[in-house]
Simulated assay, not measured.
Amino acid sequence: MTSSSAYDDPALRAGDGWRIGVLYSRTGVTAATESEHFFGTALAIEEINAAGGVNGRLLEPVAYDPKSDPDEYRRLATRLLQEDDATVIFGCSTSSSRKAVLPVIERNNALLWYCSIYEGFEYSPNVIYTGAVPNQNSMQLAAYLLRNHGRRFFLVGADYIYPRESNRIMRDMVEEHGGEIIDEVYLPSDADPAALQEVVKQIRAIEPDVVFSTLIGRGARAFYQLYREHGIDPARIPIASLTMTEGETRMIGTQLCGGHIVSASYVNSLSNESNRRFLKSWHARFGPQPASMWSEMAYNQVHLFALALARTGSLDTAKIVEAACDVEFDSPEGLLKIDPDNNHAVLTPRIAICRPDGVFDVVWEGRSPIKPDPYLTSYGFAEFWLDGERP
């Protein structure tokens, strides 16, 4: 693979810009969601550079495709830091890819901006985590499902760190509040249709109240298609997810996804001026392709980085991290800021249901942004089970 700057600009070719690495897969099992990360990142870089860059210098991106392979992430992160002179990387989507590059990032005292939701239980002074952790999505989803869909949960996930940890957390929360996990199944990340079909048949036979899915990529999309092909009605037994949003539901077929549930800090139907500006810019650049939380959070973190960089005038990791905790960005999902206690984002949780036309209707929203608790020190539901409130 060859290094490539995202823009053919003379100023960038002259080497006068702020060099940054971009490490998202455009091919492989997670290509769909990581391409959205890439597009959101590219849009933010273009906006910043069109406005004159940061302190008069343009952002100079160097992008690689790790092909959804953790070993490639590690190799290319090393290349960015040691050969391409980048000290800041926007990249990784799955926890396995983040874990693969983390030793490289820390060994080189570089800075990784990581925008995916993840299972928590991690802190590094060399990472800014802008995606939701379980106390900002899983807790709310468990409470909503127990209140609105029943107590019998079926868990299905891909066999790696994030799904197993997410399901462990979901099991703890459900069982602590009187629910039951009637089965828990794991499949390879790129599960074959026959294995997925067996799981769907099992769900149809057992008839749980709800299915919590942590499948990813092509396997997740095939699972949703098989679900309807086997006659399971989402109005009766919905699939609840932390990841299945606008881009992938369109790939599946929005009519097949009507009635399914997502817990996310952003859906593109949010009605606020910042989101309207973002969507106008997004559609002007990418046409009818829908924006989602995958693209939105990637977009947000580049703008947050630019604000921090404007303060420091330096790519020094410690200075950027300190400044990132002092600035705020008026993002499409609301005011975005980083908690200095753990380098994670303060976010507003939301729960939404997909309509047959692909629009997600928000059915519950947090009353205020929630501080991240990546180590999940409390499973308490008090905030979501107030008298008279139906989350």
Score class of each variant (00 low, 15 high):
Gln197Trp: 03
Pro208Phe: 13
Asp183Tyr: 11
Val211Gln: 11
Ser271Ile: 01
Gln197Met: 14
Gln255Ala: 00
Asp233Asn: 15
Val210Glu: 05
Ala191Cys: 13
Val199Met: 14
Thr249Cys: 06
Gly253Arg: 03
Trp282Ser: 07
Ser269Val: 03
Val200Gly: 10
Val185Met: 15
Ala222Gly: 11
Thr254Trp: 00
Ile237Pro: 10
Ala191Phe: 13
Ile232Arg: 15
Tyr227Lys: 09
Pro188Trp: 13
Tyr227Ser: 09
Ala194Pro: 09
Lys280Pro: 00
Val199Leu: 12
Pro234Ser: 00
Val210Ile: 14
Glu198Phe: 12
Glu207Val: 01
Ile237Glu: 08
Ser269Tyr: 02
Lys201Ser: 14
Ala222Gln: 13
Tyr186Thr: 12
Ile216Val: 11
Ser274His: 05
Leu196Pro: 14
Lys201Ala: 14
Asn272Pro: 04
Glu207Arg: 14
Val210Gly: 08
Arg277Glu: 07
Phe223Lys: 00
Ser189Arg: 12
Ile239Thr: 04
Ala222Asn: 09
Glu198Leu: 15
Glu248Gly: 02
Ile203Tyr: 11
Cys257Tyr: 07
Glu248Pro: 01
Val185Leu: 15
Ile216Asp: 02
Tyr266Cys: 12
Ser263Arg: 02
Arg236Glu: 04
Phe223Gly: 03
Pro193Asn: 04
Leu256Glu: 01
Gln197Phe: 03
Ala195Ile: 10
Asn275Leu: 08
Arg277Ser: 11
Tyr266Val: 09
Arg276Phe: 09
Ile237Met: 11
Ser265Ile: 10
Glu184Val: 13
Gly247Cys: 02
Phe278His: 08
Gln202Met: 11
Val211Cys: 07
Leu215Ser: 00
Thr249Val: 12
Pro238Asn: 08
Ser269Thr: 11
Glu198Gln: 15
Ala220Phe: 08
Cys257His: 04
Gln255Phe: 01
Ile261Gln: 01
Ser189His: 11
Ile232Met: 06
Val199Trp: 13
Arg250Leu: 09
Gln255Asp: 01
Ser189Leu: 14
Arg218Phe: 07
Phe212Pro: 01
Arg276His: 06
Phe212Trp: 07
Leu242Ala: 03
Asn272Ile: 12
Trp282Gly: 06
Ala195Thr: 12
Ile261Glu: 04
Arg221Gln: 10
Ser269Leu: 03
Ile239Lys: 02
Ala191Val: 13
Arg221Asp: 10
Ile203Pro: 06
Ser213Asp: 12
Ser189Pro: 15
Lys280Ser: 15
Leu270Tyr: 05
Ile216Asn: 02
Ser281Val: 00
Ile182Cys: 15
Gly247Phe: 07
Leu279Thr: 04
Glu273Tyr: 00
Ser281Asn: 05
Asn268His: 10
Thr243Met: 02
